[in-house]
Design a protein around this nucleic acid. Structure first.
Lengths: 118, 118
DNA sequence: TTTCGTTATACCTGTTGAGGTATAACGAAA
DNA sequence: TTTCGTTATACCTCAACAGGTATAACGAAA
């Protein structure tokens, strides 16, 4: 088989998220951010772990807290350690909800990709 | 219920496409474009029907034809009517393939959205 | 050989949004 | 009251991209 006619492999791909009427609430990146905040207790450290600027992380959190009725992340500044951030119970719920949704989606992608093999 | 606490309705949302190693091959918009070309036999008229510039439509088609081994659209210029465009058999196959994939995806979204009602 | 509507392609420009930098605010602990 | 690391927020800039405009190429029909 010549290089110019190398077999074309097709892959089912996509992205998912959970929306409110105001638009996107949580997707893969935001959920990962929540998980890192839960792990480190700090927005800054979570951002660093994801190789994302603090500014960007903060904006994502602010957007989530604005769109959801209940804050998903609560943060305080000053004091020991300079400040901290914690994921609320509601935030945990979204993590669980999205991961379950995403698992089913990944299964669909894998299944469909199989169908693309002629 | 005060307006500030209006019930938050969550929706499972997302986008899907079929990729090659070179990246995105076809998604919702491109498939719709193929269908319009099939309908009108003209890139320009298909673009107009989708309220898209000819330029953009042409770029999408060129990208599809480049990434797929076989052209999905064949076009000729000059002659009666100024030129024309037809969707190839391969193009038709992608329309069918994607629409089937998309149907299952839409079912997943609907099903998941049900789960979001607490 | 002129007309016509389309395909094909080059070029230019404004915008928007991603991202960095800078700095104020904060409060517990020392 | 000083220190410290974080949260919170303003500001600026540059590149990438979307999108329009312009124009060449084309060939059947009149």
């Amino acid at each position: 088989m010549p290089a110019s006619k190398k077999k074309l492999s097709l892959v089912a791909d996509g992205r998912i998220w959970i929306s409110t009427a105001e638009g996107k609430l949580v997707g893969k990146g935001r959920i990962e951010l929540l998980e890192k905040i839960k792990q480190y207790g700090s927005i800054r450290q979570a951002a660093m772990a994801m190789e994302m600027s603090y500014r960007q992380a903060w904006q994502l959190i602010d957007d989530m807290n604005t769109k959801a009725q209940t804050p998903l992340v609560i943060s305080t500044r000053g004091g020991k350690g300079g400040g901290k951030a914690t994921v609320t119970e509601k935030g945990e719920q979204y993590i669980t909800l999205f991961n379950s949704f995403n698992k089913k989606f990944q299964q669909l992608l894998a299944q469909q990709t199989q169908h693309f093999i002629f």
